[in-house]
């Protein structure tokens, strides 16, 4: 949709311009409110003060030193990153196969679509306790790899599918058919024709999946036992006490997920620009 064009006389023009200005001012305010708390957090992460808050008493890097120097934080970051990589790769592979399969007809296709969406539709808190009950009842030892990994894969899978499906669906099937006519086996067709075509989308999906896993909290809290990812670590610090280094923890989390997301966004924008 482009801007509407007022073709009426001058007064309507003025009114139209007024409306456009009002809309721009509103958008400016919206962005300001969106960013103000985040900028404040960044400012406070450098604040040389024992309590979280104002006034600003001078610049220090010690909160970052403390945060990045603590072994608990480093373990949490390592857990989050490894968990994010493992779950995003596995979920993307499962989702890609699912998306490819959805191009064909098979039994219970509509029902399966609903099942795929289930992990997203279950309310957050229930999505957490459900795994405490499930793994607790199965008497599985709770931890990053035994329980949090399957939870993260399940959580990320629907998103990965929803991102990949339109891309896979939009593929020109005649290219694959041509490869098959020329004698390529299905696997070769996939590796040499299909995959190169959707590769940018797959990479972008993996990166989005990573940030979804990296930022996931409630399902992780209930399924990770005594181990911690970064958001879980932040939560435990928050419930403990208002330590002065908390803003720095928040800034570190934000920095990591924003960077990966931005890269993913850039990649997927590039993939979309390319003709299919």
């Amino acid at each position: 949709m482009a801007g509407s064009t007022d073709t009426a006389g001058a007064p309507a023009d003025r009114l139209g311009r007024l409306r456009a200005t009002a809309l721009s001012v509103y958008a400016g305010l919206f962005y300001a409110v969106l960013y103000l708390p985040i900028l404040l957090l960044v400012v406070l992460s450098f604040n040389d003060s024992q309590s979280i808050g104002l006034p600003f008493k001078g610049v220090t890097l010690r909160w970052f030193e403390e945060v990045l120097g603590s072994s608990a934080m480093r373990t949490s970051i390592a857990n989050s990153v490894l968990l994010g990589i493992a779950s995003s790769v596995i979920a993307t592979v499962l989702a890609l196969m699912l998306a490819l399969g959805f191009r064909n007809d098979f039994a219970f296709k509509n029902l399966l679509m609903k099942v795929v969406l289930l992990p997203i539709l279950v309310p957050g808190i229930v999505g957490g306790v459900i795994y405490l009950v499930f793994f607790g009842y199965a008497e599985l030892p709770f931890g990053v790899w035994s329980t949090a990994l399957p939870v993260h894969i399940t959580w990320v899978l629907p998103f990965a599918f929803l991102t990949l499906f339109p891309r896979v669906h939009g593929l020109d099937r005649s290219l694959e058919e041509a490869a098959a006519d020329l004698g390529a086996r299905p696997w070769v067709t996939f590796r040499r024709v299909t995959f190169p075509l959707i590769k940018p989308g797959v990479v972008a999906t993996t990166m989005f999946a990573f940030t979804l896993s990296f930022d996931e909290f409630i399902r992780t809290l209930f399924s990770i036992g005594n181990e911690r990812t970064v958001p879980v670590h932040l939560w435990s610090l928050l419930s403990d006490q208002m330590a002065p280094f908390l803003p720095a923890v928040g800034v570190v989390i934000m920095a990591i997920s924003m960077m990966v997301s931005l890269a993913g966004f850039a990649l997927s924008a590039r993939a979309d620009r390319r003709p299919r």
Binding site: L40, E216, P231, I253
Partner: peptide, 13 residues
């Protein structure tokens, strides 16, 4: 693009 734990936490300060 950051955890909602952080996005909620920013309201405390």
């Amino acid at each position: 693009w950051s955890s909602y734990v952080v996005r909620t936490f920013v309201w405390l300060p």
